[in-house]
């Protein structure tokens, strides 16, 4: 490993940096980098964040003795935008009455996407996506409920529990850091000619994580309701990662918004690894039968 970059996006992440750098970790990075990410989406914060990213670029160049030109950044933006387009097409399939992909499959695709150079991912994924788009049959024929998953970094078991063992659910969207929020909007190079400004604007303006504040952060409950409508979800499972105050406190705002629309919501508390309460998930899905009745 040549380095580790941990943005200060929330309190747990800041200590991950401190812990890794300062304590006697068995794997110690030669290059550890931390920078601040604004919590608001305003013209001022976009301008400030682009300066931060420019500084980050300079430090990376210095550390690895490589020059990053504007041209190469623009090229990279195009590649990443292509990835975003592909993933958006994938999510369109989930809006169908009978989705041709399961939540578990999407999770695997996203895992691969996040850990693969995007040029490669785009090359291999596009033909597979076309095949999925042609498919007219649904991935499950016996599911009863379409579930939207909300969270930060959610525990992978949650998807398995919703979709597996005859529980009767299918995950049709994840409003999560490694879900829809990863690719929901493209970088708009027509609005900003300077690449770092364009990257900043996209990053701060994308679907908000619970860490975001100000008017942009307050959009979260409305966005969840909108996603429920778009993906025709029957219910929402809200995954609150242990010790994430942002997620715990955001819950009531989301719950209030969903309850106004008569959309059932269930909060599950747990870590991003390890086990989570399968029984609670099953009983929530079973409860939906009664709500429906």
């Amino acid at each position: 490993m040549d380095g580790v970059i941990i943005p200060h996006c929330c309190e747990c992440m800041r200590r991950l940096y401190d812990g890794w750098v300062e304590m006697n970790a068995s794997v110690k990075p030669q290059f550890a980098y931390q920078f601040s990410v604004p919590t608001v989406n305003t013209n001022l914060s976009v301008e400030y964040f682009s300066k931060t990213l420019n500084q980050f670029k300079e430090d990376i160049e210095k550390q690895f003795n490589k020059h990053i030109s504007d041209e190469s950044l623009i090229r990279s933006i195009k590649v990443y935008n292509k990835t975003r387009q592909l993933l958006n097409r994938l999510y369109e399939l989930r809006k169908r009455e009978k989705p041709s992909v399961s939540g578990f499959q999407v999770q695997e695709i996203l895992d691969i996407c996040m850990s693969t150079p995007k040029e490669k991912f785009n090359e291999y994924f596009e033909p597979y996506l076309q095949e999925l788009e042609m498919r007219e049959t649904g991935v499950f024929n016996d599911f009863r409920y379409r579930v939207l998953l909300y969270g930060g970094m959610y525990n992978p078991s949650i998807v398995k529990y919703i979709e597996g063992d005859g529980t009767g659910g299918i995950v049709i969207c994840e409003d999560a850091c490694h879900g829809y929020r990863y690719f929901d909007t493209e970088i708009n190079m027509e609005a900003d000619t300077e690449p770092m400004t364009a990257i900043s604007r996209r990053y701060l303006g994308k679907m908000p994580c619970a860490r975001m504040a100000g008017s942009h952060g307050e959009r979260t409950p409305d966005i969840v309701v909108k996603l429920v409508r778009e993906f025709r979800a029957d219910a929402v499972i809200y995954f609150a990662t242990k010790r994430c105050d942002n997620l715990f406190w955001e819950y009531q705002f989301v719950k209030d918004a969903l309850e106004k629309e008569n959309i059932p919501i269930k909060k599950i508390e747990g870590d991003i690894s390890g086990d989570i309460p399968q029984r609670e998930i099953r009983s929530f899905i079973e409860l939906l039968d009664f709500i429906e009745a």
């Binding site: 929330c10 309190e11 919590t39 860490r211 504040a213 952060g217 307050e218 105050d245 942002n246 406190w249 955001e250 009531q252 705002f253």
Partner: peptide
Amino acid sequence: CDTAMKLARF
């Protein structure tokens, strides 16, 4: 604190 932000919104 993150909680302070959420408390203020509340």
